[in-house]
Computed example of a mutant assay.
Amino acid sequence: MQVEVYVQDYYHESSAPEALQSGEKDAHITVETWEDWFECWLEILQPSISPAHTYEVGLRLTDNSEILTLNQQYRHQNKPTDVLSFAALEVDAPDVTEIDAEEPLYLGDIVISVETAQQQAQQQEHPLPTELAWLAAHGLLHLLGWDHPDDESLSQMLKQQVILLKAIGIDTDFE
């Protein structure tokens, strides 16, 4: 299995000097690392998703201003949030016979506010890359149809996120 992750790091591109001044230079996660993480996660989750030779995910790292605009537009929430997911497979996953073996199966886009992630990382007292991985895993689960309308489903989703982070070597205390 292969995963193509298209990373748009709007946040670090637009605020690189400030990020470097605040000691955030070590928080940058390479595209290769993102691809490795998503590949690992999808291998774990593959029994519950449509089989494909290649999957495709869009990941945009941004600021509170942009995620506020998206949150207003798509969720009618007038506040920034940490992560938004825009699933390409809204209804049902395609049947195996409908999948073109040559084309990647596009799962959708994940948008993460690095500003909010920084605040949450400080509150949780862990590094920013840990928070970004946590939010990306959460976003991926949403792309695959997971949701948390009640406490029980939220608990199940959080447990799955812990499994995903442990698989990439990030030990969490989020439970």
Rank of each mutant, 00 (worst) to 15 (best):
A27S: 15
T116M: 05
P129K: 00
L105R: 01
N78Q: 10
I44R: 03
L132S: 04
F86V: 05
A136D: 05
T81E: 05
L105K: 01
L68Y: 15
S85N: 06
D36W: 04
T62L: 06
E125Q: 01
G108L: 01
G23L: 00
N78Y: 15
S85C: 08
T81F: 10
I44S: 10
E103D: 08
L105M: 03
A121R: 01
E115P: 05
H53Q: 08
C40I: 07
L59E: 03
D100R: 00
A121H: 03
H126Y: 03
E18Q: 09
L20R: 07
L42F: 12
L61F: 15
D82W: 07
Y11K: 00
S50R: 05
A16N: 05
L61H: 13
L89E: 14
N78A: 14
L84T: 05
A88M: 03
A27M: 04
L45H: 06
E43S: 12
E66S: 14
E66M: 12
E32T: 10
P80A: 14
N78E: 12
A93W: 11
D92E: 12
L128W: 02
S50C: 13
E103R: 01
Y106S: 02
K25F: 15
K79P: 07
P80K: 03
Q118M: 04
A93P: 09
T130R: 02
Y11P: 02
E32A: 13
E43G: 14
N64S: 15
V31T: 13
I29T: 12
I112G: 06
A121Q: 03
L42I: 10
A52E: 09
A19T: 08
H28T: 12
L42K: 01
Q21G: 12
A19M: 08
F38E: 03
E24T: 01
D26M: 00
R75M: 13
I112E: 06
